[in-house]
Amino acid sequence: MGVIYLIVIGAAAGFLATRMMKVETGIVQTVLIGIAGALIGGLVIRMLLTVGGLLGGLIGAVLGAMLLIWLYQTYLGRK
């Protein structure tokens, strides 16, 4: 169940993050960005704020995905 949860939250977080950051990506890239963001943001948010539950995970996932997009655009992407 944890993998399915990660994919669903990752897809939602990736969608929200790519729309907030105005990045055009495909479905697979959006889900991968969201999953990576969920891993990064979820760990950071839970460690720093000890926020639990679905809402805390979604907020952390979106923030992590936005950070990942920003890092990609800053260091690897076209400007």
Results as ranks from 00 to 15, higher is better:
16 L>V: 15
1 M>V: 12
75 Y>H: 14
30 T>R: 04
56 G>M: 09
43 L>F: 12
23 V>A: 10
67 L>D: 07
8 V>N: 02
3 V>P: 02
41 G>N: 05
23 V>Y: 02
59 I>N: 01
56 G>S: 06
22 K>R: 15
32 L>I: 11
21 M>G: 04
62 V>S: 03
56 G>I: 12
78 R>M: 05
11 A>L: 15
31 V>N: 06
78 R>T: 10
43 L>Y: 13
36 A>N: 07
68 L>S: 10
15 F>H: 01
70 W>D: 12
75 Y>A: 07
46 R>S: 14
7 I>K: 02
1 M>S: 11
6 L>W: 06
50 T>P: 01
36 A>S: 14
56 G>L: 08
55 L>F: 09
78 R>N: 11
79 K>W: 08
42 G>F: 03
4 I>Y: 10
52 G>K: 06
3 V>N: 06
19 R>S: 13
4 I>Q: 12
57 G>S: 11
71 L>E: 10
68 L>V: 15
2 G>Y: 08
16 L>Y: 02
5 Y>L: 09
15 F>D: 04
32 L>T: 12
48 L>D: 05
22 K>C: 06
13 A>I: 09
2 G>E: 15
19 R>N: 13
25 T>H: 10
11 A>H: 02
36 A>E: 07
27 I>V: 15
27 I>H: 04
47 M>F: 13
56 G>H: 05
29 Q>H: 08
56 G>N: 07
40 I>Q: 02
66 M>P: 07
39 L>R: 04
64 G>S: 05
74 T>Q: 13
12 A>S: 07
45 I>F: 11
27 I>L: 15
53 G>Q: 04
44 V>L: 14
9 I>T: 10
2 G>P: 02
21 M>E: 15
20 M>D: 04
75 Y>L: 10
34 G>D: 05
57 G>H: 01
4 I>C: 05
54 L>I: 15
9 I>P: 02
23 V>S: 08
16 L>H: 02
49 L>S: 09
47 M>D: 13
70 W>G: 11
5 Y>H: 09
75 Y>V: 06
71 L>S: 13
21 M>P: 05
65 A>W: 00
21 M>A: 14
54 L>G: 09
58 L>H: 02
76 L>G: 09
67 L>N: 06
20 M>G: 13
57 G>M: 05
30 T>N: 04
51 V>S: 11
18 T>N: 12
70 W>M: 08
59 I>D: 00
